[in-house]
Design a protein around this nucleic acid. Sequence first.
DNA 1: TTGTAGGCGTTATCAA
DNA 2: TTGATAACGCCTACAA
Lengths: 347, 347
Amino acid sequence: MKKRATIKDVAKYAGVSTAAVSYVLNGKEYRVSPDTAEKIREAIRELNYIPDYSARSLVKNASKLIGVIIPQTEDSKQLILENPFYSEMVSNIESRLRESGYHLILSGVDKGESYLDLSVQRNLDGAIIMGIYPEQFYAELKQVEIPIVLIDSYINDPWFSKVGVDDEYGGYLATCHLIERGHRNIALVTGSIRKDGVVEKRFLGYKRALREADIFYNPDHVFEHSVSYAYGYEAGKTIASKHPEITAVFATADMVAFGVIQGIKEAGREVPDDISVIGFDDIFLSRMFVPPLTTVRQDIALKGKRAAELLLEIIESDEPEKIDRKEVTIPLSIVERQTVRPLKPRS
Amino acid sequence: MKKRATIKDVAKYAGVSTAAVSYVLNGKEYRVSPDTAEKIREAIRELNYIPDYSARSLVKNASKLIGVIIPQTEDSKQLILENPFYSEMVSNIESRLRESGYHLILSGVDKGESYLDLSVQRNLDGAIIMGIYPEQFYAELKQVEIPIVLIDSYINDPWFSKVGVDDEYGGYLATCHLIERGHRNIALVTGSIRKDGVVEKRFLGYKRALREADIFYNPDHVFEHSVSYAYGYEAGKTIASKHPEITAVFATADMVAFGVIQGIKEAGREVPDDISVIGFDDIFLSRMFVPPLTTVRQDIALKGKRAAELLLEIIESDEPEKIDRKEVTIPLSIVERQTVRPLKPRS
DNA sequence: TTGTAGGCGTTATCAA
DNA sequence: TTGATAACGCCTACAA
């Protein structure tokens, strides 16, 4: 195997010192005569020289590596990447990062494990984190002192930048949409309502909408378990078969909504004729679902892109420690498709 | 910011040399007295020492980093990760890799770009590549001389290991399934048929099945463009409205099948009552689609896992150059759900 | 069983 | 404008 060319080889080939080569490599050409610069560039081309980022990372203490963490499945094995919501975001993060010359290490984190290892082993320049983790997890992360942006998190710590949506408002919007169409017995189907999680906020929005409409909040109408198609399916069946009073459901994620609809059909009832369903996220599948899903739309691609940009902004500032942490909120809107129908003609 | 502990700090703290520390770090404890070993371990714990992989990569010439490449969208911006087929695979690759202490750099590669840069910059220990690229791309990759496994590729080069399915057979299976149920006018809806691509093989299988059943192959019945929901939708509409003779379609990917079905419905006809549809892949959505999709199943998770294992096997062998490249083929089977119906009672 | 020292590929300091 | 040379953090002969 022919050894790869190092900076020394280039220097020798061009008849200069390694320092000179390093200069032209790092945009300090002004430190070198145009003549030698050309010779060096020639040598680089000729030898097919490509710098070693490990060596660079060692001396510059910057790896051009960004960590991206996404939640894992319950059994804590696979990434939850199958959820289009995450993959769409990762995809956009990657392209934005690559555009700026950074690479992305994609990883899950085992339950109880810390991300400390990876981030210091690899000398990460920054990290983007999706999902909710134990407090402990964030505490450790802070110690590493690398810039971090949290996606969809309500962790309140000035060290972290955040991008998310107004989940409470989203929940409110969805529920109002249903209420305005005459529904009063509205179920909530959702993943587990953890303190300070997005789901809790959506839940809060749901309750606020009910309250403002003077509808009695009925705990029996909230179906809480996991954000998955499978659970939605279960809940849908239950609702359709055991809760004739329920005429509409708000599912806190599109994937869950799909399950709910399927479950309802399985139980022999129709959407939206018998029961209306509204989702949350507007993943690209929602458009192609049958029937197309009415949902609370957020711009997922934008979310990923903004997260990447926020991070880069901090990393590339002169004083990363000093720069203000930001919080960007992606707008929300209802997109009406075909899973919600007015219960009765408006009076 | 408190500096991170280095091996020197550990050595000093434990009152030994850096060599000793390195020994226990690298499983060569037999070179050290149990006593000092304990002291060292203590120091590591105390100082929260975590080795720097960059430095390690430099001296060991091994980065514990694996590159994973997935195709990009046509506009060559985002990754095609939204396609659940890919995300499911990536997810499984990641978990298998992490299990063995490797990390994954996820990346797309711009049209015309090479992957050379990334792989040598990062000193990748190996790479897993999905999708089809220009010949040139593979040629360059070979030069880097790192172990590589190709997923779903028909590139024929002993340097590359491969994991895939028997696509020709899959296409054959799908088409036979339709023929056996009395269909004779069977459309093929597919991404572009490139030489040596999986799609071409499936196309070949389709033709073989027709031939064996003495059905005339009608080029007007193949709809070839891109593997996307959107194109499937177009094709579905066209088929339903302009080709009354067609009673069944074989879509070469589930995502396309979804589009086809939607298009057919849009044109006012029903699946499977008017037209039967069979897909390919069995992504997890196929189960939850309405109606549940009949399709050619491949175990996507297994595919990712096997790819990772194949790669690790080569990397961790003593003589990576010598080890035999392998080709693993994931089995295929038809899973009958509700989008295909017999055209007429069997005679 | 232990420690010394050279080297991995870069960058950056400091003289020349 | 140049070029030695000392880091960076780690591993591994080689000596002791």
